[in-house]
Design a protein around this nucleic acid. Structure first.
Length: 901
RNA sequence: GGGGUCUUAGCUCAGCUGGGAGAGCACCUGCCUUACAAGCAGGGGGUCGUUGGUUCAAGUCCAAUAGGCCCCACCA
């Protein structure tokens, strides 16, 4: 006989089920033109990473969508893979080497890369096995890596094409330099930190008309970085600033390096700030760089790559930038050029990885020109070709596209895609090509050196949606699965990744990579803080899975969350999810207990409605039907949190707490004689439970699979079908016309109200559970017998449960009785059975007041001409019905009150 | 400085296109009822940040305001 343990235990079960899925190749998708594809590419996790809550969030959402679409009959492909993550991996390897006392440079490029590949081999797979623990139904046969052979070819191809089109160029620009990582970093990798510093007020002597350095006339300005004065090539004032009008065009004297630099007028200067004078250091400040370019100023680099002062820094050469700062301030003071020092807090750019203060430097780097490329990316969102969910993120998206700057793609790192550019050893001429050319077209030299830099890690990620499907080859996969459908990711990488995928895809493929981007927020700790290593507040999803199961983790993550919103993670919430798994487990056990033991074909395999269905059966079928429609609708609108909430409520509240309780009497041995009714109940129980397992499967894949298969008991079909052998390849429930039972729904709705009324009464009147109470059900409705044909049984159940005899009676409400007045039925408990007459009066009075409020609202609406003329007819009808009910009920309550007092 | 977002029950949060205030946890009461105490039944508790406006009707739309958070830019 099919049995389940008393308590749900995900341990072991989840791994076992996942293995079966893999063995059966359910995750695998092949080109099949008879079916529509549905494709998601995974945001490739870094090979350095271990699974964190962010991954869990991201991948749970993707898995839900892909499982849903798979069940709906789509040829669903979830394309997995990992990212080489150039800088973060390189940093980690350097740290590892440090422990062995080895420096990256000592090892050399070749040996270092060997080391990196070893790292990839060792740790790259860890994240994959962790994703499997979560239940991710990726097509692992298609796993890719951003530095595998195909992706390498894709990267080179794109680089060459874009270079040929003039989108990629090499140029001198001011870039952010990290002196510790020894590489340039992109603007987006700079993190601003508020730091306490100083504002040094300094003055430069003016050069007099006779060419002498003035002893009396000075220009005063303030700076947070005095050491950069060594690279000053001008001071600037605002063109409208009357105070300095006569100075513009003159020169001032720069101490130490003894340079004469011009005073220029530029509207970049804020007249209000400080003295209205700014020193201009084009070599070490992005704004100054711009000013410098406008005025044709000299660009002087005063620093080495390790942020020590170089030979342009006169006597300070060789000093660290901070040591030089100290010394310069001291000497300026001695020269009488330091006016004062002020405390000042300001934002300082730091490298997000190592938090070193970045140094703006002018360097030759490779760039992608963005002005033209970005346009179609902005248009796609603007005209709705690509939909961002939630829509409010459009603003953030346009904030990026409207303020785009050229993308610096070269990195002075070793781990990554090598730039396909070769310099002639003889003349230095650069050739961009797949391989080193044989001859330099410029000087005919034959020896070349490849550019030592690698590409920004996002360069390859930007190609991810099509390179993983075979590009640059023309593959059938690409043709069939691309463009993909939905991208699921965090809003924090809109710029890094999403925008870059969109323009890259448009440029290379002529089409957008997906039509929808579903964003999720961040998972925070219970105090609302981000998870971070330094805070030590991280929660390891694997530990949660170990303790509560992957299903519980998934349900927790998705419940009550709406797209793009952050959420807090509480263990209490996981416990609740685990309890829900246990709940459905036990509901299943209950049904199994009542099934025949002979291993007969399960009843629900016959989808026709059986004889003997009662009102209760029809009601739950109708409620299920309704849930199917709503949940499907929510899923299609990506409202996953709402969808799962509805499934949860249906299963726990309607199915378990009401239907199973209603149906119990019919299952009892002594009622076995009424076989048709019993069979109908069992058929309904099975049909609804199995259907509910399907609805729940995308969210909680493991427990639903176990239950589904237990019920199918080996009778499943090997094909994808309604009763496939696995729930994950079974078909998603659809709305059924034969499950529409409006009348029965209404009846049971009434009965539920009645029962609640009785429970309320008993509870409020302090009726002891053991106390037997008479209950009269009074109805004006002549059809009451029919209405309550089920309810009698139901009441009996309750009475049994409560240890109380309840009985229905058609006589009127006795004088001395507490009662609940419903629309067309009154439920009462004789007062002699009860404690307190006053309590009943108080209760009825409250009820009366509530109704008065409702009535006045309703009357107001129906008296309003505009409402009557504008509102849809159904709405008005509905309101009239409501009012009628209110009035009836109100009258009854008044009567009861009178009778009591 | 620009943009976004949030403010709903003690806590954490749902609430789609305006029309009877919700969930989980916590709390209180009563139940070990033969699926489940990881459970069942019932209950208390909210002027939906503040002010004004649109509307017959606003948690829901508009404006202003206070406070929190996020992103971008970054004033030397």
């Amino acid at each position: 006989m099919r049995t389940l343990d008393k308590t749900y235990n995900p341990h072991g079960l989840e791994d076992r089920i996942y293995r079966t899925w893999e063995e059966k190749k359910y995750f695998h998708a092949e080109v099949d033109h008879s079916r529509k594809p549905f494709t998601i590419v995974i945001p490739p996790p870094n090979i350095t990473g271990i699974l964190h809550m962010g991954h869990a969030f991201d991948n749970t959402m993707q898995d839900i969508l892909i499982r849903f679409k798979r069940m709906q009959g789509y040829n669903a492909l979830w394309q997995p893979g990992t990212d080489h993550a150039s800088i973060s991996t390189e940093v980690r390897i350097i740290q590892e080497l440090q422990k062995e006392g080895i420096k990256k440079e000592d090892l050399g490029r070749e040996a270092f890369l060997e080391r990196a590949w070893e790292w990839k081999k060792e740790y790259g797979g860890a994240i994959i096995s962790q994703l499997k623990k979560l239940g991710s139904s990726c097509d692992w046969d298609r796993e890719r890596f951003t530095m595998d052979e195909g992706c390498n070819r894709a990267v080179t191809e794109v680089f060459l094409k874009m270079h040929a089109k003039g989108y990629i160029y090499r140029g001198s620009r001011i870039i952010n330099w990290c002196p510790v990582c020894n590489t340039s970093i992109s603007d987006a990798e700079v993190e601003y930190e508020e730091q306490n510093g100083h504002l040094w007020h300094i003055r430069y002597p003016v050069i007099e008309a006779d060419g002498s350095v003035s002893k009396e006339r000075f220009v005063e300005f303030a700076t947070t970085r005095p050491e950069t004065m060594l690279g000053d090539t001008a001071v600037a004032v605002h063109p409208d600033d009357d105070r300095y009008r006569d100075l513009v065009g003159k020169e001032v004297f720069l101490p130490f390096v003894e340079r004469r630099i011009p005073v220029v007028a530029d509207s970049y200067v804020d007249m209000e700030f400080g003295t209205g004078v700014v020193k201009i250091t084009p070599g070490h400040d992005p704004n100054d760089f711009e000013v410098g370019r406008r005025h044709g100023l000299q660009e002087i680099n005063i620093m080495n790559d390790d942020a020590t002062i170089n030979e342009n820094g006169a006597k300070f050469a060789g000093m660290d930038r901070y040591a030089a700062r100290k010394q310069i301030v001291k000497e300026l003071d001695e020269m009488g050029l330091l006016v004062r020092i002020e405390d000042y807090t300001h934002n300082v750019g730091t490298h997000e990885r190592c938090h070193t203060t970045v140094e703006p430097l002018i360097k030759k780097q490779w760039f992608v020109r963005m002005d033209e490329l970005i346009r179609p990316a902005a248009d796609a969102v603007r005209n709705g070709t690509i939909r961002l969910i939630p829509q409010r993120l459009n603003a953030m998206y346009f904030n990026w596209t409207d303020n785009i700057r050229d993308w610096c793609i070269s990195r002075q790192l070793w781990w990554g895609h090598r730039i396909p550019a070769y310099y002639c050893d003889n003349c230095g001429e650069v050739q961009v090509a797949e391989k080193a050319p044989e001859k330099c077209p410029h000087c005919k030299g034959t020896h070349f050196t490849q550019d030592p830099d690698t590409l920004d890690t996002w360069f390859s990620s930007a190609l991810w949606p099509f390179e993983t499907l075979g590009w640059p080859d023309k593959t059938e996969d690409l043709d069939y699965f691309f463009p993909t459908d939905v991208l699921v990711t965090g809003y924090d990488i809109i710029f890094f990744w999403v925008i870059r995928m969109i323009f890259s895809s448009y440029e290379q493929m002529g089409t957008y990579p997906f039509h929808t981007v579903l964003f999720h927020g961040l998972i925070r700790d219970e105090q609302g803080r981000k998870f971070s290593k330094s805070l030590g507040n991280g929660i390891d999803p694997l530990e949660v899975i170990e303790k509560y199961g992957a299903d519980a983790l998934r349900l927790t993550i998705i419940t009550g969350n709406s797209p793009g919103n952050d959420m807090r993670f509480y263990f209490e919430r996981v416990e609740n999810s685990r309890n829900f798994a246990n709940k459905i487990w036990n509901a299943s056990r209950f049904i199994l207990m009542n099934l025949p033991e002979d291993g007969k074909k399960p009843l629900f395999l016959d989808t026709r409605l059986p004889r003997g269905l009662t009102d209760a059966d029809c009601w739950i079928l109708a409620r299920f039907n309704n849930t199917v429609r709503e949940v499907t609708d929510n899923m299609e609108r990506y409202e996953l949190g709402i969808a799962v909430g509805k499934v949860y409520d249906f299963i726990w509240d309607e199915f378990c707490d009401w239907y199973i309780e209603m149906v119990k009497p019919r299952l009892r041995e002594e009622n076995a004689a009424e076989d048709a009714s019993r069979q109908a109940a069992l058929w309904t129980l099975e049909t609804v439970l199995v259907g509910a397992m399907k609805l729940l499967h995308p969210f909680m894949p493991f427990v639903t699979e176990e239950i589904y298969q237990t019920f199918l008991d080996g009778f499943g079909s090997e094909e994808r079908s309604e009763f496939a052998e696995s729930v994950m390849i079974s078909s998603w429930p659809v709305f059924r016309e034969d499950f529409v039972f409006a009348k029965e729904e209404e009846k049971i709705g009434l009965i539920k109200e009645a029962v609640r009324g009785i429970r309320n009464l008993r509870s409020e009147m302090n009726v002891a559970p053991s106390k037997k109470t008479k209950v009269f059900v009074v109805s004006e409705n002549a059809q009451k017998r029919e209405v309550f044909s089920d309810s009698l049984v139901f009441f009996e159940t309750l009475s049994h449960a409560q240890g109380t005899l309840l009985q229905a009676d058609k006589t009127g409400v006795p004088e001395d009785a507490a009662s609940v007045v419903l629309a067309d039925v009154t439920i009462c408990i004789p007062l002699d059975e009860l404690v307190d007459r006053q309590a009943e009066i108080a209760r009825l009075t409250r009820e009366k007041e509530r109704l008065e409020k409702e009535l006045s609202r309703s009357k107001g609406m129906l008296a309003n001409e505009r409402f009557l003329s504008k509102a849809p007819a159904e709405k008005i009808e509905e309101e009239k019905e409501k009012q009628k009910k209110y009035e009836q009920t109100y009258a009854q309550i008044c009567e009861r009150l009178e009778a009591l007092s």
